[in-house]
Design a protein around this nucleic acid. Structure first.
Lengths: 235, 235
DNA sequence: CGGGCGCGTAAAAAAGGCGTAAAGAGCGTT
DNA sequence: AACGCTCTTTACGCCTTTTTTACGCGCCCG
């Protein structure tokens, strides 16, 4: 159930802050507040919250920078608040490590739903699964071993990291940017040919017919996705 | 506190104001009224409404200016009322941050439908949900998948971005400018033929009869609107 | 009646993304 | 020092997507 749940609000607008506070307290969450990015970051250590709600339109710091810093300092769930005019920033914030977002204006029901979903996602710990399995494919994430049917497949370090990321987001699209960022680091964010080559190698090793992949699917112009088992398959 | 639904009417014409007030009260909304832009803006703070209905033809201030100021002061939903002669102003108001419009004369049913769409965005959070569904159409926004009935439909990146924007504003009008700006960037703001072509492609893929669209509706001279099914059985 | 305007459609040309092969570079191990 | 493995770089052909171009229709207004 809902245990402690202290929420850190980083929001400059008094009105919004008041609304958030009352709405959250009403639902049984504790809150601490900061009206700018700097003190917000400072409170991360002093208050030790369970979750952060961050407004992108802060006066003192760029919202993206705050997000990135938060992510550097902890793995806490981060919920972004953005005004309608900040669509682009919102996407950048998600890329920088935010977990979800709300576009203003929003009601308390919506806020509550987002928080619930966020909490559920975190506590369920999808990321911590030890063995992933779909179709003929089986991946032991802690032993770093991969099987197709009965046979073990040799996997290189980079291949394994790529595969792990796709497994962690199984069924979802992972953007080029995300993959490159996590495997090769920020300075190779534009080297998409790496992805083509390594995805090609992985397909060669994992797919029955690499030309018609069943697991490692391409999302044109966006990224890649690991297909999750949907009971029937041909090809 | 959250379900009060107080509407601020900014409207100079007594007759229209009376009609609006009675029509709204009848539906269970509270109203406060201002007969000019200045007091209207002042009441924003004093009355703390949940939504604003603004007539563009005010005596004291330019409607666009009022809209812009409202947007500066808050993120409240704004519904514009405009006379038929104010076609151009209407578009400018939408671009300045208004959410939807009604052209006089209008009936209470029409008014009600627009308000429903606006309110739904807030209370149910249509703007942020992961799966959008209406009629035969189902869009999974995080998985980037689109279904018509049982069948998945292949969607290109640009098509998906357009569709996402319309979904984010489901039930509301989105101006040409807004769409072009968000998808192609500021330098293509006048290339409306892009919209014609891509909306055509989307209709071809999503509509049962592309020539008589049920979902992707054209607002002549203004923009496009994604129609939503109203599950409520009133009116 | 005709011409302009906004919208929708079709089909082309252009651009860009993707997959594959293969050769070169780096690095640890033997 | 040579070998083997992995990672990086380069090149090319195919295919999808995007952009360009052209035309047809309905409507309002002169």
């Amino acid at each position: 159930m809902t245990t402690s749940h202290l929420i850190l609000l980083i929001e400059d607008d008094i009105q919004t802050r008041r609304f958030l506070k009352s709405s959250l307290n009403h639902r049984g969450w504790q809150t601490v507040e900061a009206d700018n990015g700097k003190t917000g970051l400072a409170m991360l250590n002093s208050e030790n919250p369970d979750l952060v709600i961050l407004d992108l339109g802060l006066p003192d710091m760029d919202g993206i920078a705050v997000t990135r810093r938060l992510r550097q300092l902890s793995d806490l769930p981060i919920l972004i608040l953005s005004a309608r005019s900040q669509e682009q920033n919102k996407i950048m914030a998600l890329d920088a490590g935010a977990d979800d977002y709300l576009t203003k204006p929003f009601g308390s029901g919506e806020l509550h739903a987002r928080l619930q979903a966020l909490m559920r996602r975190i506590s369920r710990g999808i990321a911590n699964q030890e063995i992933f399995e779909t179709g003929q494919l089986r991946v032991d994430l802690t032993r770093r071993k991969v099987f197709v049917g009965e046979n073990e497949v040799r996997i290189t370090p980079i291949e394994f990291r790529l595969l792990s990321i796709l497994i962690r987001h199984a069924g979802l699209v992972v953007t080029h940017r995300q993959l490159l960022q996590e495997v090769w680091g920020a300075e190779h964010i534009h080297d998409q040919h790496y992805l083509r080559i390594y995805l090609g190698q992985l397909r060669h090793k994992l797919e029955i017919n690499p030309a018609r992949p069943r697991y490692l699917l391409t999302e044109m112009g966006v990224g890649y996705r690991l297909a999750v088992d949907d009971h029937s398959s041909q090809d």
